[in-house]
């Protein structure tokens, strides 16, 4: 068992190294001159040449890569070409906002998606199933960026009940000291008992939260349904049914327990998709997270920033998958 987990972690590290190598190569062939970017929009040839040496861009590829890896091991992700700030510092500023959004979406996906999937499987091919399938498939078929625009149009412009974007109202952020423990406003304001800030932050969270959560809710519901359907056909379930166990017990205890593995994989997967959605809609909601950061970085071809976000998201994604795999492995019913 220990050996298996160790092996998985080792593999994860190898894969991560591959991810870094690929991203690094991609960013090195981006058709733009990082040195010119570094100096500023109207640089002279001499300035650019100086910057090339300063940034080590005159070195061979492999040496640059080696330096990047060794810096990375010290937690140094290089400097943003646009802001000249350490990418690690910038990420630290932007990550909490995105994590807050992703956590909320994942939570919604779990508490709404899983029951939806279960009922859908239970009433397979009945109207409840059709309805819930239509909803869950619909949720993964909507262009997120479009949903964002329309929620704004309805709830801000027409109904005027929810804010347009941002994490908190400006007058609140100016007049009051914002709590900063984890950087996640909802959590921090709740823990410190600043309910006015909490309420304001919560209202700001609703539209982006719903927008980003739609996809994972649909995804989790779909996957739970199909995982359950597979299990419900397995022999031991059929057998336990024929022993006359109540359907409820069969469904909730036996079947669901056995679908824990696939479900945790789905949750890990859904975090990936939630991240993807933050890339698309954070700009629309003026949400100061890594999604908006990377979309700005892509437009500005700020390659250290692109790499930073990619590595961070890949690490999160890999770690979640690892956890999911370990959960499956810990399940006594699964033999490794």
């Amino acid at each position: 068992m220990k050996k298996y987990i160790l092996r998985r972690i080792l593999l994860g590290i190898i894969v991560l190294f591959g991810v870094i190598a690929i991203t690094f190569t991609i960013t090195r062939v981006i058709p733009s001159d990082p040195a010119a970017k570094w100096v500023g929009p109207r640089a002279t040839h001499e300035q650019i040449q100086e910057a090339r040496i300063e940034l080590g861009l005159d070195q061979p590829y492999i040496i640059q890569f080696g330096k990047y890896i060794s810096d990375l091991l010290h937690g140094d992700l290089g400097y943003s070409l646009r802001s000249h700030q350490p990418v690690a510092t910038e990420l630290k500023n932007y990550i909490p906002a995105t994590v807050e959004l992703v956590l909320l979406a994942t939570l919604l996906a779990i508490i709404l998606g899983i029951p939806l999937g279960i009922y859908s499987a239970k009433y397979k091919n009945r109207w409840l199933d059709h309805l819930s399938r239509l909803f869950s498939v619909g949720a993964v078929s909507l262009p997120t960026f479009w949903v964002a625009l329309f929620l704004q149009l309805i709830f801000f412009s027409k109904l005027e009940i929810l804010p347009l974007g941002g994490r908190i109202s400006t007058n609140i952020s100016i007049m009051y000291e914002l709590p900063n423990i984890t950087g996640m406003l909802l959590f921090d304001s709740l823990v410190t008992g600043k309910f006015m800030i909490f309420k304001d932050a919560f209202l700001h969270m609703i539209l982006p939260g719903i927008t980003v959560a739609l996809y994972p809710i649909g995804l989790v519901a779909r996957m739970t349904r199909s995982a359950l359907l597979e299990i419900l056909n397995e022999e031991y379930i059929v057998a336990s049914r024929s022993y006359g166990l109540p359907e409820k017990t069969v469904l909730w205890i036996y079947a669901l327990k056995n679908s824990l593995g696939p479900t945790s994989t789905v949750v890990a997967l859904s975090v990936g998709y939630t991240l993807m959605n933050t890339f698309l809609v954070e700009a629309i909601f003026s949400w100061p997270g890594i999604g908006r950061y990377i979309s700005d970085a892509v437009i500005g071809l700020d390659y250290p920033a692109i790499m930073g976000v990619t590595i961070f998201s890949a690490v999160v994604y890999l770690a979640l998958n690892l956890i999911a795999d370990i959960i499956i492995a810990l399940d006594p019913r699964v033999r490794v």
């Binding site: 058709p31 733009s32 010119a36 970017k37 437009i299 500005g300």
Partner: peptide, 11 residues
């Protein structure tokens, strides 16, 4: 993106 456009024009 401006940087790609600029790079192309100088390349």
């Amino acid at each position: 993106p401006w940087d790609s456009q600029w790079e192309m024009s100088k390349g």
